[in-house]
């Protein structure tokens, strides 16, 4: 049962990722060419109708997830890696430097994430701003969780035995503590990915994403909102795609975290 759920979750997340990353090549449709009247309803040759400029909605949905997904995955990986490294260090050592770093990361938690992201957008170009926002908003959460788990593992028998056979701190952290908390970290990576997807979408809706006419799920939400009465599919399709991306990744991380 467990193996089945793991496989099902991996399959769902895999399918969504394949479509998000390679949808344009799979579909063979042109996402930029005008093929119909604006907000034409679904019909033969246009399964999801047309958007504000008469472009094929299906083609744009299939092509519009690539950059957003890659960016979100990269940002989540960066935030999680930084948080895990900092958490292992903070949970293990009790030096003054550690206390300073944890205090700074707690300070970041106090600031509203969207405010931090908006500041980052002003200073940095769009993609870097997403990475910076996810790292600043997500890494402190990861750090807290991992630091707490590490501090508890310090007194576990297997860590004491490793120390007693002369392993250095870094070796104990990488060989003993990290594998023992792999499930926790997998779940955390899923959470950070969802956060990164949401942040990327939010910034792209605000127009900091790829410039028009390039297709993008988040930008499509903004472009097609006025035509909701004429062709709701133009708005719903990218929204469902965003939800599926976040949901399947979160589901996979959940299943992985529950493994014994």
């Amino acid at each position: 049962m467990r193996a089945f759920r793991t496989r099902a979750a991996a399959l769902a997340a895999g399918c969504v990722l394949v479509i998000a990353l390679g949808g344009e090549a799979l579909a063979g449709r042109d996402p930029i060419r005008t093929v119909a009247v604006p907000w034409a309803a679904a019909g033969p040759g246009l399964p999801l109708g047309a958007d504000a400029l008469g472009r094929d909605v299906l083609a744009r949905v299939l092509a519009g997830g690539r950059e957003l997904t890659l960016l979100a995955l990269a940002a989540a990986a960066a935030a999680c890696a930084l948080g895990v490294a900092g958490g292992l260090w903070a949970g293990w050592s009790r030096s003054r430097a550690v206390r300073t770093v944890t205090a700074l990361s707690d300070l970041l938690l106090v600031l509203p994430l969207l405010l931090v992201a908006m500041l980052a957008v002003v200073v940095l170009p769009g993609p870097s701003a997403v990475v910076a926002g996810t790292v600043l908003g997500g890494a402190p959460l990861t750090l807290r969780v991992v630091a707490d788990a590490t501090a508890q593992a310090r007194h576990a028998g297997y860590v004491e035995v490793a120390l007693a056979r002369g392993e250095r701190g870094l070796s104990v952290l990488c060989r003993e503590v990290l594998p023992a908390h792999a499930g926790l970290i997998g779940a955390d990576l899923g959470q950070r990915t969802v956060l990164a997807v949401q942040l990327t979408a939010a910034l792209n809706v605000l127009g900091f994403g790829p410039p028009p006419p390039a297709p993008d799920w988040a930008a499509m939400l903004r472009e097609n909102l006025p035509g909701i009465g004429l062709n709701p599919a133009a708005l719903l399709a990218p929204a469902v795609a965003l939800a599926l991306l976040a949901g399947t990744v979160a589901g996979l991380s959940h299943v992985l975290a529950a493994r014994p």
Partner: peptide
């Protein structure tokens, strides 16, 4: 020293936590 580390071996009290659950 490595000699001292080899010469002393500890078996802890708590069999549940004595082994790393992941390995």
């Amino acid at each position: 020293s490595v000699r001292a580390l080899r010469a002393l071996a500890l078996v802890g009290q708590d069999p549940l936590a004595a082994l790393n659950p992941a390995r």
